[in-house]
Design a protein around this nucleic acid. Structure first.
Lengths: 212, 212
DNA sequence: GAACAAAGTCGACTGCGGTCGCTTATTTTG
DNA sequence: CAAAATAAGCGACCGCAGTCGACTTTGTTC
């Protein structure tokens, strides 16, 4: 049963996140001070620290909310009959679009999740593993219909595509890819290259069937 | 001709970097204050800002010095007759070892260079392009001897391997890979997977020898 | 329900990265 | 060589993230 204390806590936490969404969005993350955030949420500054250990944790909570939404979006527009590359492209481009919508947050979130400082930072592994499950389901189906080699550890396959996503996003942040179209094209090229392989082969995956 | 001013500037800059190497090494980056750094270097605090715009830039300068050294090391132990995967593995593991030696610096450096905040941050593209040249030379040779497909844009090939390096390092920072051996093995698996491709092929580059 | 324990709240405070405006050293000009 | 111009040096200062210790509210025990 939820007592008075628990109820207040939920309310306060929500007030903080709501204030963060508004202020981070309006003013930007760096430019929003904890004092301003507290004031907007109608609480004292140090009360925030009861709920979030650092300012970054607020951001991460915010980003995870957003990614939750992206995840739903992905599930809705999923098309299990499309080619593997197409499906993955759809998923990772949805992720990328979150980043473009929130360039600053996206960067901080990526920095934090790709090169985490310490593993104690509050971070939902639950969402991570849902993404992994999603990918695994796709891989599994593609293996069955012969589009993906069967002698592959699925975790490594996921790692391969995830890494290509990362390098694409990195290229965008570095200015090597500028428009969303550039990113989409670059990502697709890399995905196809990963499917075909870099070493010499007599029959490549693309010669046999045409998946478009 | 170098005047008095230029000479002093070189000396002061060196003093800052030397102080940084000592203090960052002893106390850690975050724990070293700009005041302490200035004091160690024997100058006023704000004088540092004549040479480096931010604290991070000092770190980046330090890391680039280290990577310069790593680059030399790589060139010395290079073996052009080894397989492509072996050569790349040697190179990227050398990079990785720099990171393990300096876990904290490495993380900050990677964060900064993979997801840069703004492109104005002082950052030597010169070193980057030397690494690219190094890779391209290797790829070129491997294409000639038939180990690497000829219908490949080398920039994309480089991107693919670099991305696999990144995801491996990321896994280490996230604790999914723990020891150096884990990292070495994971990286090799990913590299080989990239060579062979993920899509179905009748003859793959490794099938002649052994497959699992 | 009174006394005690536990957890939430808060403003004052600390230490830090970075800036400002003044001072001092070097170079350029005529 | 003097004077004007330019650039380095510097400490006081600012705003901010995060901490501390005192206080208040909620939950528990007998």
């Amino acid at each position: 049963m939820e007592g008075i204390r628990e109820k207040k806590k939920r309310k306060t936490k929500k007030a903080i996140i709501d204030a963060a969404i508004i202020l981070f969005g309006e003013t930007g993350y760096e430019q929003t001070s904890m004092a301003a955030l507290a004031s907007k949420a109608g609480i004292g500054k140090s009360t925030i620290y009861t709920y979030f250990a650092t300012k970054r944790e607020i951001l991460i909570a915010f980003c995870e909310d957003e990614l939750e939404y992206v995840y739903k979006e992905i599930n809705e527009q999923a098309n299990p009959d499309a080619s593997l590359v197409d499906q993955l492209h759809t998923i990772f481009m949805a992720e990328f679009r979150f980043v473009t919508r929130n360039k600053e947050f996206g960067r901080l979130f990526l920095r934090e999740s790709v090169f985490p400082k310490d593993l104690t930072v509050e971070h939902s592994h639950e969402l991570d593993s849902r993404y992994i499950d999603l990918l695994f389901a796709i891989f599994d189906k593609c293996q069955q219909r012969g589009e993906l080699r069967k002698d592959r550890e699925l975790l490594f396959v996921a790692a391969q595509f995830y890494s290509l996503y990362l390098v694409t996003v990195s290229s965008w942040y570095s200015g090597r890819l500028q428009t969303e179209d550039d990113v989409a094209e670059g990502m697709r090229m890399l995905f196809e290259q990963a499917m075909e392989g870099l070493g010499p082969t007599t029959i490549s995956y693309k010669e046999k069937t045409d998946y478009h």
